[in-house]
């Protein structure tokens, strides 16, 4: 059964379309990364899934239910972002206890252990924490709620790299021990590549691709070599990025639609073939043609 199912989901704010006919589904027990550039619609999509926003059109199903105003969906999913409102009248530990009262699967022992591990001040209030510590605390709530659908929106905001690494480890370990569907949006896909199983890429409110991380690693390819040699290979292909690396040299990134033989042949003709990481692939797949270089390119053939 699919945990998340979206069909032509569109969300409009006034005139602007934050989500434009997004259709995809995510199965049970998957650790999925939701990536995309700023303003791609990641947060909107996550809020729609969490039942906070109502889709303007299309159909959203979480656990085969419409999430907006559904108590069962709310009880079985948790949405963690960096703007969580917690009352200043409660200390962090009291907030964890509230979480324990609300969520049936709550693992309080883990919560307290993580709390101690990350050196969070137990008497402090949420708003007294630094951004990174707030994110750490929110992350603990998200993990320990053990909801069948756990949604993290930019969970690492403000965390230093050590804490980020710890978070990834904790996420993975807890996921393996208690498999559930976890959706994480992140700008640090390169850091999370190893633990994610699947990636959903959004751009300008539209779904660009959804594929397992392994496939994404093979999705694009980098070719570099003499311009005239490359010309033959990239003709008719969708080039994502072209970079001048020397007077005559060029480096291009394009969708990998070459067979193994073709790649062998390219290598023989002096083209350097290298793979592109999933995170770079996502960047190239969604960046404007030519990249920022293009902006600075004032030559006439522009």
């Amino acid at each position: 059964m699919d945990v998340i199912k979206c069909e032509d989901v569109t969300k409009t704010y006034r005139r602007r379309k934050a989500l434009d006919q997004v259709s995809f589904s995510i199965g049970e027990n998957k650790l999925v990364g939701l990536v995309g550039r700023n303003g791609a619609g990641k947060t909107t999509l996550m809020k729609v899934l969490a039942g906070m926003l109502r889709e303007s059109s299309g159909r959203v199903e979480v656990f085969s239910r419409r999430p907006f105003n559904d108590l069962t969906v709310s009880a079985n999913s948790i949405f963690i972002d960096d703007e969580m409102n917690f009352p200043p009248t409660m200390t962090l530990v009291e907030l964890l206890q509230e979480g324990r009262r609300f969520y049936q699967n709550w693992d309080h022992e883990l919560a307290m252990k993580l709390f101690e591990y990350f050196n969070l001040p137990s008497k402090a209030r949420h708003q007294d924490l630094s951004k990174g510590m707030q994110s750490t605390f929110n992350m603990i709530i998200g993990l320990c709620a053990r909801c069948p659908l756990t949604i993290f929106d930019e969970p690492t905001t403000g965390m230093d790299s050590v804490v980020r690494q710890d978070f990834y480890r904790a996420l993975l370990k807890d996921y393996l021990a208690h498999p559930r569907t976890i959706l994480v949006s992140t700008h640090y896909l390169n850091e999370m590549e190893e633990i994610l199983e699947e990636v959903v890429l959004l751009d300008k409110g539209q779904l660009v691709l959804q594929m397992p991380i392994d496939e994404l690693n093979e999705f694009t390819i980098r070719l570099s070599g003499k311009k005239d040699v490359l010309e033959r290979w990239i003709q008719g292909k969708e080039v994502l990025l072209t970079k001048e690396t020397g007077h005559d040299d060029q480096s291009v990134i394009l969708k990998n639609s070459f067979s193994a033989e073709e790649r062998q042949e390219m290598k023989r003709s002096g083209v350097h073939v290298s793979s592109v990481s999933a995170s770079d692939a996502c960047i190239y797949a969604t960046s404007p043609k030519g990249g920022v270089d293009h902006v600075f390119d004032r030559s006439e053939d522009k």
């Binding site: 009352p87 200043p88 009248t89």
Partner: peptide
């Protein structure tokens, strides 16, 4: 009235109520 989130300032400690 002690608020949470956006408005954090309050004349009295949060739990004073």
């Amino acid at each position: 009235m002690v608020s949470s989130g956006k408005i954090k300032k309050s004349l009295v400690p949060a739990k004073a109520g």
